[in-house]
């Protein structure tokens, strides 16, 4: 469970990038955040993860106030998994090492079991498990980053554009994987996406940001049906 209330945040002495954002992500639900480039989606995730300190407002995880808690404690105490938009793999380590790192706080046996399961789910990673991550394509890095977050069975999952740079086929697989995680493990999933149409299809609800504020919010199915949304963010009349 993630609860964000009236959060304001920015970088350094700069202006507020987030102008009082509130949202909720419940366990077993996928919440998607949409919006144009530069509107503050990644900043919102970084705020929740603890990389950017909110200037005002509150953040709660599983009912506990965590507004000013540093990232590593959130990760340890609330099992937060984070897939950043950029710099998402350790380039000089192998694929297997990268995935294993995500499970470093787990029992060894659980970690290895999860590792095998994940490699089964992502054959493209399995075939390259002993390669350096620097030798992966952009899409493969994206997958690797997702696998590293999933190995620990997080109870809060923050995904910053998990489908960026993926082929349509791969994108479908990634969204299926995320939907599958929700079904089996039921974490609270907060996902930033540009592929709005595909993302909304697997989501329960969504928020559309504009200039650091929530412009539209609602059930994913309602947003998909909303003609204004269609023309504004979904790009024409697909389907």
């Amino acid at each position: 469970m993630i609860e964000v209330t009236e959060v304001r945040a920015g970088y350094g002495d700069g202006p507020d990038i987030l102008n009082g954002i509130s949202l909720t992500a419940e366990p077993g639900r996928i919440v998607t955040i949409l919006g144009p480039n530069g509107c503050g989606k990644s900043t919102l995730l970084k705020c929740i993860a603890g990389f950017v300190r909110p200037r005002a407002g509150h953040i709660r995880m599983s009912g506990e106030a965590v507004t000013d808690v540093p990232t590593y404690l959130k990760v340890r105490n609330h099992r937060v998994g984070f897939v950043p938009q950029t710099d998402n793999v350790f380039a000089s380590m192998t694929v297997a090492e990268n995935i294993m790192l995500g499970g470093r706080l787990m029992e060894r046996r659980d970690r290895e079991r999860r590792f095998d399961t994940l490699l089964g789910q992502y054959p493209s990673l399995a075939s390259k498990k002993n390669r350096r991550a620097s030798a992966l394509s952009g899409g493969e890095r994206q997958l690797l980053s997702l696998a590293r977050a999933l190995i620990s069975e997080p109870s809060i999952l923050l995904l910053d554009e998990p489908s960026a740079g993926l082929s349509p086929r791969m994108m479908h697989d990634v969204f299926e994987a995320i939907a599958d995680v929700r079904r089996r493990e039921g974490p609270s999933i907060l996902m930033v996406e540009q592929n709005a149409f595909e993302a909304l299809h697997v989501s329960d609800s969504a928020y559309v940001l504009s200039f650091g504020s929530v412009a539209i919010e609602g059930a994913a199915s309602d947003l998909l049906a909303d003609p204004a949304m269609r023309s504004l963010y979904l790009g024409g009349d697909k389907h």
């Binding site: 990232t71 590593y72 984070f82 793999v89 995500g102």
Partner: peptide, 8 residues
């Protein structure tokens, strides 16, 4: 940042 997000 990635290190922090792994609990370091």
């Amino acid at each position: 940042q990635l290190a922090a997000s792994l609990g370091y």
